[in-house]
Every structure is written in structure tokens, then in C-alpha cells.
């Protein structure tokens, strides 16, 4: 291909400048020590994501489906999208929550796009982990929980294990070895969809979810 050859040729013919070694991230990392304890990490995550207009609710491995059902009812959610093949999806289905219709994401989007856009009130997905520093949730959508679950419905519930908090994105990438196993799509979500494009006035629910609700699953009986 000639455009490729021409562009690369021009770049390769350009003079070589001062040496530019692979950047050393050590000084930056040293300035960001890991948070002393899990409770502080969690508190920081919570403060930051709440400041970004998300809700956070404490729960347990047993109780979260019931909490979800209560929150969904309170928010007037009739249809709740879930991934039936995920572990928590199966747990949710087994709990048979009252008052809300569970809709499984079990076929390619082409088969039901209009329904997804028009008839789903809310969704529930898991999070891989979270980031304290910026109050962010890490999602790796996959066949069990496809990409659009965290985008199209107006309310997005996210189930997060309370012990999976990293100080920042770099720490998450390193701990989870992202560079060696990137999924087709990885997401870092820091609050509900928003915009300040009109006169710098913040408005939520621009195109994605208007509400982001974190169900914080604690291993130790439900309290942080």
C-alpha cells in the first residue's frame, strides 16, 4: 500500500533526535503509595464515586438480590436486564425478585435492538474491580454481560466486591495484568453519563445511564 509506505518512509527519513528512553514510571508510582488499609481505600472510592453522582449501598453476598429488588421497586423499575450465564446473574434469577421482570441478555443485539433501547428500565452487571482515586468501576464486558448493558438502560446497577479496590488505574492495570490479556472491550466508568456542553452546566443522563448505583458486596457480614 503506497500511503503506508510513503508515510512510514517520511517518518524513517526524519532526523533522529535526542535519546528518548522508555519513560520511567517509578517516580510517579512512588508518589502514589498503596492505601494503608482496605477500609480507607473503600472510603475513598465511595466518597469519589458519590461525588460523581453515583449511589452506593452496602450489602452482602446473600442479601444483594433482595436489596436490588427493593431499590428497583423504589425507582419504579419494571424491566431489569441481566446476564443469565454469569454467576451473579444465576443467583439473581434464583432469588426470583418480586415486582420486577428479569430480562436476560441472551441473544445478539440485532435480534432485539428496539426492545433493548425502548423497553428496558435498568440493568445489573458485575464489576471486575474499582478505583479509589477517581471513584471508578472497572467492567470487562463479555459474552455473559455484553457491552451495552452498562450503556443503554437509564439505570445501571453494578455489583462490586468491596475488597477489590485499587488506588488508581495504573495499579489496577498492573495487578490485573491488563497488558497481557486485554478483552475486546474494557471500560472504566466513573459515574452516570453526563455533559456540561450547554453553558458549562452539568446535566446527567446525556446518552448513557442517568443513574449509576453501586451494590457494594462485603464479605464480612455486610458492614464496611
Amino acid at each position: 500500500m503506497s500511503a503506508r509506505k510513503n508515510i512510514l518512509g517520511r517518518l524513517r527519513r526524519a532526523p533522529v533526535g535526542d535519546p528518548a528512553p522508555l519513560p520511567e514510571l517509578a517516580a510517579w508510582r512512588a508518589s502514589r503509595p498503596p492505601i494503608a488499609d482496605a477500609a480507607s481505600a473503600l472510603a475513598l472510592f465511595r466518597a469519589n464515586i458519590e461525588a460523581a453522582h453515583a449511589e452506593v449501598h452496602d450489602t452482602t453476598a446473600q442479601d444483594w438480590p433482595a436489596l436490588l429488588a427493593r431499590l428497583a421497586a423504589a425507582k419504579g423499575v419494571h424491566t431489569l436486564l441481566f446476564g443469565p450465564t454469569s454467576l451473579h446473574g444465576a443467583q439473581l434469577a434464583a432469588s426470583k425478585p418480586a415486582g420486577v421482570q428479569l430480562v436476560p441478555y441472551d441473544r445478539p443485539v440485532e435480534k432485539w435492538r428496539d426492545q433493548l433501547f425502548d423497553e428496558i428500565d435498568a440493568s445489573i452487571t458485575g464489576a471486575v474491580s474499582a478505583i479509589a482515586d477517581t471513584g471508578s468501576l472497572i467492567l470487562w464486558p463479555d459474552a455473559n454481560e455484553p457491552r451495552l448493558m452498562s450503556l443503554v438502560p437509564a439505570i445501571h446497577f453494578v455489583l462490586l466486591d468491596a475488597q477489590r479496590i485499587h488506588i488508581d488505574l495504573h495499579a489496577a492495570m498492573s495487578a490485573e495484568a491488563w497488558a497481557t490479556r486485554m478483552p475486546t472491550n474494557a471500560l472504566v466508568i466513573s459515574g452516570p453519563s453526563k455533559t456540561a456542553d450547554i453553558q458549562q452546566t452539568l446535566a446527567y443522563g446525556a446518552h448513557g445511564p442517568r443513574e449509576l448505583i453501586v451494590l457494594l458486596r462485603h464479605a464480612n457480614g455486610g458492614q464496611p
Partner: peptide, 24 residues
């Protein structure tokens, strides 16, 4: 840019929809 700590969405795209995926 906007004085935000972080954007709402950081989107890492590393490929098209795989055979078993339902969207993308």
C-alpha cells in the same frame, strides 16, 4: 482539559465482536 478528575467513560477497544459475544 475540563478540570475533571476523570472522565465518565474510559473505553478501551481491542477488537471487534468475538464469535461468542452478543454485541459490539
Amino acid at each position: 482539559a475540563t478540570g475533571q478528575a476523570v472522565e465518565t467513560y474510559q473505553n478501551f477497544i481491542t477488537g471487534p465482536r468475538q464469535a461468542d459475544e452478543l454485541d459490539g
